[in-house]
Design a protein around this nucleic acid. Structure first.
Ligand SMILES: [Mn+2]
Ligand SMILES: [Mn+2]
Ligand SMILES: [Zn+2]
Ligand SMILES: [Zn+2]
Lengths: 147, 147
DNA sequence: CAATGGATGATAATGATTATCATTCCCATA
DNA sequence: TATGGGAATGATAATCATTATCATCCATTG
């Protein structure tokens, strides 16, 4: 826990293991939206031994610890992304043809204001305890648009 | 095609079959967000013979025709919803605990304005051809909030 | 050192969805 | 009205991502 540079963030932390560090390293190196298999493939070049189950388990672990976010963009496999405190609040643009994911942060202030108002209204109206929101645009990326 | 009350909407329409009508009828009866299995279970009470593969195929068919929308709310199976022209543009509130889905239409005008501006900006910046958008709130519904 | 409990790897199991394929149905045309 | 071909269907196998199981490993504690 302490001694890894992440102590502050954790509450009911398990052990900090080489597997977990290795997975986090992958996200540090190749920043983006990675599937479990992306991570697995990337790791087995260096540390050869890790099993795919450990990748799944630890992606979920890291998400619970707040270090990663998980996204289910339509079909296929889930994507994980590093939660970088530095980076601005952002959402996603997803190509329905090739699956490419693009981050964007346009109009964040306006969006957050709307989101906040909506949350207030909805939690009152439906007694719903809102924890997070997600906004995506779907369409065709520039490569896929040209047939 | 003609004679079924849907002719206007279709472009490269296939046959209109009893299976397709039966599936659409389910949505008319039990309006909401239904999984393939929900539809399958509901149908086999009346029309006994339909196979699950036909349900999947025709849900997809009806979506292509613009009669249904498909949603992948996180884990589990996809949900389909009837596209009702009468109804206002809406988005969803999803309970992360029990999976309950609630429609809402609060602040639609403000939202659509923001969406439009964002679309314009993003399609310019990323040469991305945006076709649709989705906005969800995740959290705990009133039943699930009380432990 | 022995006991404990979490973490791991191999692999089986699951659940949703899609693919395959033989059969049936529909409809335009002869 | 008969018929030929393409679309639709049902049964079922296959696929794909993810989760469950379980024996083993390993670090920590006493
Ligand atoms: Mn992102
Ligand atoms: Mn809805
Ligand atoms: Zn693309
Ligand atoms: Zn709930």
């Amino acid at each position: 826990m302490r001694g890894h540079g992440h102590g502050r963030r954790f509450r009911k932390m398990g052990k900090w293991t080489v597997s977990r560090q290795a997975i986090l390293d992958v996200f540090a190196k190749k920043s983006g939206h990675l599937t479990a298999d992306d991570v697995y493939m990337c790791i087995r070049k260096n540390s050869p031994g890790m099993g795919i189950a450990t990748v799944y388990r630890n992606l979920e672990f890291l998400r619970e610890q707040g270090l990663l976010s998980k996204y289910n963009f339509g079909e296929g496999s889930a994507h994980y992304e590093l939660n970088d405190d530095e980076r601005e609040h952002h959402h996603h643009l997803i190509c329905k043809s090739c699956g490419k994911v693009i981050d964007y942060s346009e109009f964040v202030d306006r969006e957050l204001k709307l989101i906040k108002d909506t949350e207030k209204e909805l939690s009152k109206k439906h007694k719903f305890d809102i924890e997070s929101h997600e906004l995506c645009f779907y369409g065709k990326c520039s490569s896929c648009a040209g047939r």
